[in-house]
Structure formats: structure tokens, C-alpha cells
Amino acid sequence: MLQSKIPATVITGFLGAGKTTIIRNMLMNAGGKKIALIINEFGDLGVDGDVLKGCGADNCTEDDIIELTNGCICCTVADDFIPTMQKLLERGTLPDHIVIETSGLALPQPLVNAFNWPDIRTRVTVDGVITVVDSAAVAAGRFADDHDKVATQRAEDDSLDHDSPIEELFEDQLTCADLIVLNKTDLLDAAGIAAVRADVTARVKRKPTMVEARNGEVPSMVLLGLGAGSEDDIDNRKSHHELEHQALHDSGEAHDHHHDHDEFESFVLKLGSIADPSAFVDRLVPVIEAHDILRLKGFIDVPGKPMRLVIQAVGSRIDTYFDRPWTSGEKRETRLVVIGLHDWDFAAVVGAVEKAV
């Protein structure tokens, strides 16, 4: 009998939606399945991979976690993802399941399509695409731009040839989903959750299953075993960019084939120890709001504490927790990755964050 294909789950979602938390919870409750993780981040500091390596799950050791930090996976499929998958499939002991966490800025469509690559298609199938949604961010209007204002700006400036990159990306990630997880519902009341459901539903022509979650807690039996075979349905999950390209192609107009991330920028900031992280967080909130920082995450060195402090900020919501002890070969320092839109004042952002220390 032919060996069954290895199922792979793609977990996508915008910056700070809670993808890593969901994966961490899944690993701790995977029912003994041996899981291989491929993690992609926007920026050079691999925070998510470090967090997952520290969770101590026996079914997913450090050797089973592969990090791709050369750019968003949707733009480096041929150069990074396919060779990584080929090496993974050459291992003596194969995983029971593969989980891929995309960058918060990645389009999932090119990644799903990569599973039609000849060397991969015969051995792996996309069990499902799971899109994680920050319900509180949706309720706050993060992805609901003023379309009349955008139309006016486009009429006045010929260089504005597309709608909000954030809103388009959010909708593209929803469009590709087999399962949508409305995360962080504990931050909303019943009316707020209902409004988020209506908002998300209105953005998707396809109608994937939708579940609610608090703190990224979704049973593994819900996340794994969807059996969607998503790579066979890729034509029904086209992104805004693909649909625009198709329309221009049909009209005979030239169009750039590549999706890029010129709308976004990131940098890694290395700081000294921070004696009072609570005060740092309080001072950081107005900095994030003033400079429209989309995402801030990393590790803080707290003097006198043997464990490193993880910091995760989505908008002005900031969480911190100690995850594991600093290792003997690890340099103790505060390292933060900051992500925002390309038109920010880089020097001002750096200066403001440093001043908050």
C-alpha cells in the first residue's frame, strides 16, 4: 500500500493575532503526535521560534523547529520554503504532522500553491489553512479604513495605486482560510464578538468554519485533521493582487507579478537591562500610539531575575511573562523587533523607544 501523505497545517494571520500562542497550546495538547514546525518571521530577530523552543514539548524538540528569517515566506517560496521541505522529507524519522507559521505580513496563497511542487505534492498535503484573527483589533477598526478618504487620496496622488495594504492583506489571509479562529474574544462582550463575526463574514466570499478562542486556546482536534487538501482548491482563494493581475492580464495591460512588503518596515533594537519593566511598559504605550507601531515583541533582561521576560505588544495592548531561564551560552540583553508602516520617522521611533527605557 502507498504510504499516506503527511498532513501540513498552515497557520496565518496578521501581526499579533496570536498565532504563536495557538501553536504553543497545540503542541502541549497534540496527543503524542510528532510535529515539525516551520516558522517564518518578518525581521531578523526570531522571537516566535525562541518562544516555541522554550515550551518544552516532547513531541516537538528544538531539532524539529525550523526558522526562516530571510523575508516573508510568500516571497521566498522557491529559495527557502521548498528546499526546507525537501530536507525535512529526507530525514530518517518523518513527522506525523507539519505545522507552518507564516509571517504576519505574508500572503498564504503562494505557500499553499507550493504544495503542488512535484517533489512535495506526492508526499505532503495541506490539511488546512487556519487564519487567526485578533478580534479586539477588528473591533477597534484596525482593518476598516475609510474608503472614501482613500479614494480621494488616490484621485489626488497617482502613486497611490491600491487600497490600504493592511486591509487587503487581512482580507487575503481570510480568503485563503479553511478555518478562521476569532482569537482574544475575552477582550470583548457578546455584542462586540457578534460585530466582529459580521465584519469578518462580510469580507470573505468563501465561508470557512469560524470558531472563537480566548488566549489562543483551541483544541488540537479542531486544528488538526481538517483534511481540506487546500492545494487542490487554490484557484478559489485568489488574493487581491492575483485578482488585479488577472483583470489587467485579461485587458492586455502590463502588471508586476510580485507581491512585496514595501509598505512595511522593521528593525531590531538592542538595549541594556531594564530594572522596572512595568514602568517601561507604561512609557511604551504612548510611544506605540504616537508612531502607529503595528507590532513590538522580544525579550527583556531584568536584573536579578534568572528568567528572561517576553514582551508582546499589539497596538497599545502589551503583555509580558517570564518564559524560561537565560542559558549559560546566551547573552543577556533586551532585544526588541519593531514593525510599522514604511512612512514612519525611523530615527524618531528608535529615539522614542530608547527614551522609554
Rank of each mutant, 00 (worst) to 15 (best):
residue 69 T to F: 15
residue 4 S to C: 06
residue 309 L to Y: 00
residue 69 T to N: 15
residue 227 G to Y: 06
residue 50 D to S: 12
residue 198 A to S: 12
residue 286 P to Y: 06
residue 222 V to A: 08
residue 145 D to Q: 11
residue 215 N to Q: 15
residue 7 P to S: 07
residue 41 E to V: 06
residue 36 A to G: 03
residue 42 F to V: 09
residue 256 D to I: 08
residue 217 E to T: 12
residue 142 R to E: 09
residue 67 E to W: 03
residue 147 H to A: 13
residue 52 L to P: 08
residue 209 T to G: 13
residue 83 P to Q: 11
residue 352 A to L: 05
residue 147 H to L: 14
residue 198 A to N: 13
residue 104 G to V: 14
residue 209 T to C: 10
residue 138 V to C: 10
residue 30 A to F: 08
residue 256 D to Y: 11
residue 130 I to C: 09
residue 344 W to N: 09
residue 235 D to T: 09
residue 277 P to K: 03
residue 192 G to N: 06
residue 6 I to Y: 07
residue 150 V to M: 14
residue 40 N to Y: 02
residue 354 E to Q: 14
residue 118 P to T: 10
residue 265 E to V: 15
residue 352 A to W: 05
residue 153 Q to R: 14
residue 350 V to N: 03
residue 140 A to S: 09
residue 355 K to F: 12
residue 268 V to F: 09
residue 137 A to R: 00
residue 271 L to V: 02
residue 75 C to M: 08
residue 296 L to F: 06
residue 135 S to H: 10
residue 124 V to M: 04
residue 22 I to M: 06
residue 331 K to T: 15
residue 291 H to D: 05
residue 89 L to N: 01
residue 189 D to F: 07
residue 136 A to N: 08
residue 223 L to T: 02
residue 119 D to A: 15
residue 41 E to D: 11
residue 146 D to I: 10
residue 201 T to C: 14
residue 119 D to P: 15
residue 208 P to K: 05
residue 189 D to M: 07
residue 208 P to A: 08
residue 288 I to C: 01
residue 41 E to I: 06
residue 2 L to Q: 15
residue 355 K to Q: 14
residue 267 F to C: 03
residue 254 A to E: 13
residue 56 G to I: 03
residue 6 I to V: 09
residue 111 L to Y: 09
residue 330 E to K: 07
residue 353 V to T: 05
residue 122 T to K: 14
residue 54 G to S: 12
residue 312 Q to T: 03
residue 266 S to Q: 04
residue 209 T to D: 12
residue 139 A to E: 03
residue 229 G to A: 10
residue 50 D to L: 15
residue 99 V to S: 00
residue 37 L to G: 00
residue 255 H to D: 15
residue 11 I to F: 04
residue 213 A to L: 05
residue 280 F to W: 11
residue 306 P to R: 08
residue 178 D to T: 07
